[in-house]
Amino acid sequence: MGQRPLEGRLVVDVLDVGQGDAILIRSPEGKTALIDAGPTRDAAARWLRAKGVDTVDLAVVTHHHLDHHGGMESVVRDWRPRYFLATDSDHATQSWLRLLKTVKAEGITVVLPTGRPRKVELGSVTLTILPQPPHDPESENDNSVGIRLQYGGFSMLMTGDSEPPSRRWWLENCPELLRDCSVLKLAHHGSRNGTDAAWLDVVRPELAVVSLGAGNSYGHPHSEAVELLKAHRVSLVRTDQWGTITMVSDGETWNLVSSSIARRNPRERAGAPTRPVAAGEWGRTRRR
């Protein structure tokens, strides 16, 4: 069994792994999923150890870029997840092929997204794997896996580094799986091509989170994305300012909590939420 960090609570950690993505999900029953694993060998593994995670039920790589799978080989080798989910995109590098070799050597069951939604149960938490858009040989970002997390009335949408073509495809083909999410993980580290008005109009998040490295060379998050969120009155929290971002829900209400919040005092930083977030209720969850 995995850790039970808060009995009766869902805990989602957007891990501080620098310029990359890694999201740790722990259900009230102790089931665990890791979505992406950061850019470096120990990016995710050190956080799993620090949080006392002893089992990983599901490991997901949203797409085949190093900033999302660089730390997954260590996780596969040391935690031996029950299932490994990734696409069969033909975008392959030596590091990606090495990861696949490790998955096979450890005897882990491989699961592929399909053209229809797939549900994964982590105890009382449901992960819905969005239908996979048609393969794009030119843009690996647009081969990203999309996932909606649902626990009671709390929901979170995560779509890797998806760009406008794949997001338009989801809007056209499965809008009901995108609607009214409590939290949106910004695609492509807050890039201008990772968020648009049509997407926000459907998702209608209460909060946006973004994973990125401090002083990154890409200029993430781009000012266009930040201003768009402001125009839609969506608060933004960032790992480069806050460190690991932790959300906790009992299925009825949810909180944004983290020891790093008090340490970094992000409310003194430009663009940080002005409402209290270190303790207490962030919002009532929205039932679908």
Rank of each mutant, 00 (worst) to 15 (best):
P5G: 04
V11S: 03
V12M: 08
Q19N: 13
D21L: 12
L24Y: 00
P28M: 07
G30V: 11
I35L: 14
A37W: 09
A43E: 04
A50V: 00
K51F: 12
K51D: 04
D54M: 12
D54I: 15
A59Q: 11
T62L: 04
H69G: 06
G71S: 02
E73N: 13
E73V: 15
V76C: 05
D78R: 14
W79H: 09
R80I: 09
F84G: 00
D88E: 14
D88Y: 05
S89K: 00
S89I: 04
D90C: 03
A92Y: 12
T93A: 02
I108S: 03
L112Y: 15
T114K: 10
P117F: 03
R118A: 13
E121Q: 12
L122G: 07
L130G: 00
P133I: 08
P134V: 09
E140M: 06
I147T: 06
I147E: 04
I147A: 02
S155K: 00
L157S: 06
M158I: 14
G160R: 02
E163T: 14
R167I: 14
C174A: 14
L177V: 05
N193H: 14
N193S: 14
A197G: 14
A198C: 12
D201F: 08
V202Q: 08
E206F: 05
A208R: 10
A208Y: 01
L212A: 11
S217D: 11
P221C: 05
H222D: 03
S223D: 13
E227F: 13
L228R: 12
H232K: 15
H232M: 00
L236H: 07
G243N: 01
M247F: 04
V257S: 07
R264L: 13
G271T: 09
V277P: 03
E281T: 11
G283Y: 04
T285W: 02
R287P: 05
